[in-house]
Simulated scan of single mutants.
Amino acid sequence: MRPAPVAREIAAGRHLSTLAAFGPSGSTSVQGDVVQLRARKNWVVAAGEADSYVWSVGSALWLVPANAPGLLVPADHAGMGLRGTVAASVQADPVRVPASNELGPEEIAHPWFLVLGGAVSLGLMEGALGAALRHLGGTDPRTKADLARMRLRTDSVRVLYHDAISAVTWQPDRSAHRVRLLAVAASEAAVAVTDLAMKVCGDAAFRRDLGLERRFRDARAAAAIEPTVDTLLESVEVHARP
């Protein structure tokens, strides 16, 4: 499995890859053209379903095939997960991959991971608002203020999302603050917006055809995945502006 051909398969929609980055850093050892990776990674979304894993060890990222020798994935998972996925711990004990499967430094991928997480939160908010509007019609004065709050919170995150994409694309060395801002705002806004959607729709929010209860749970599952809001806030340097 070489990174370039896999990238083409991913672009064509024939290959699913997932990120294995959270947990102990792990270690590597080299034996000729083969690298052994040792680590345990937590909150690996689509564990057991993905075709490959983007695996972080130290400061480097490696492409690990799902069938790589030494990759241990739980047979089942009782957690909540996100829509249509599982989120489980995966063990490399050790995993053996070709040295050519190194993808590069982790610092290149991390900002995009946070941006994509913001996109997931944004999708959850738009979906919750759309479902609430279809059910309520947006004309009931008792729910109008809450619907307006949902719209404004969602639009605010969309502004931060486009700003973060622009920063990572054109000024990656100056993008860290904007990416963290998006990640924190999007995670907290998704929880707030889906909570309001449940509130305004009342008992109907639990109907399967609306899909609100599922988005409500998804927003909370996403907020629990590392890096959490608290983890991101610990890296922010707070100072007064002149």
Score class of each variant (00 low, 15 high):
residue 24 P to E: 08
residue 77 H to T: 08
residue 87 A to Y: 07
residue 24 P to A: 06
residue 56 S to Y: 00
residue 98 P to M: 04
residue 25 S to K: 13
residue 96 R to S: 11
residue 79 G to E: 04
residue 23 G to Y: 07
residue 24 P to S: 13
residue 55 W to Y: 09
residue 79 G to L: 01
residue 97 V to W: 00
residue 99 A to Y: 08
residue 72 L to V: 09
residue 47 A to Q: 03
residue 101 N to P: 09
residue 96 R to H: 12
residue 21 A to T: 15
residue 30 V to W: 14
residue 30 V to D: 04
residue 49 E to T: 00
residue 51 D to K: 10
residue 46 A to P: 02
residue 80 M to C: 15
residue 82 L to E: 05
residue 73 V to F: 12
residue 86 V to C: 02
residue 71 L to F: 10
residue 61 L to N: 05
residue 86 V to M: 09
residue 61 L to I: 07
residue 29 S to F: 08
residue 98 P to S: 15
residue 68 A to D: 03
residue 82 L to P: 00
residue 80 M to V: 12
residue 67 N to F: 13
residue 86 V to I: 08
residue 89 S to Q: 13
residue 53 Y to I: 12
residue 47 A to Y: 03
residue 82 L to W: 15
residue 76 D to Q: 15
residue 79 G to I: 08
residue 37 L to P: 01
residue 66 A to I: 09
residue 97 V to K: 02
residue 42 N to I: 14
residue 84 G to I: 10
residue 79 G to F: 07
residue 27 S to T: 15
residue 83 R to W: 12
residue 48 G to K: 06
residue 75 A to D: 10
residue 74 P to C: 00
residue 45 V to P: 03
residue 66 A to K: 10
residue 64 V to L: 02
residue 71 L to K: 10
residue 55 W to A: 02
residue 30 V to Q: 12
residue 76 D to M: 06
residue 23 G to Q: 03
residue 92 A to I: 00
residue 30 V to P: 13
residue 20 A to F: 03
residue 27 S to C: 11
residue 103 L to H: 00
residue 57 V to C: 00
residue 77 H to P: 04
residue 63 L to G: 07
residue 19 L to C: 01
residue 28 T to E: 08
residue 82 L to K: 14
residue 65 P to S: 12
residue 97 V to Q: 05
residue 18 T to H: 04
residue 85 T to G: 01
residue 96 R to A: 10
residue 31 Q to R: 12
residue 92 A to F: 10
residue 29 S to M: 07
residue 99 A to C: 07
residue 22 F to N: 14
residue 61 L to K: 01
residue 21 A to W: 11
residue 23 G to A: 10
residue 101 N to W: 11
residue 23 G to F: 06
residue 81 G to A: 00
residue 91 Q to A: 15
residue 91 Q to W: 14
residue 66 A to N: 05
residue 53 Y to V: 06
residue 84 G to E: 11
residue 39 A to I: 13
residue 71 L to Y: 01
residue 19 L to P: 00
residue 73 V to S: 04
residue 48 G to M: 02
residue 40 R to Q: 08
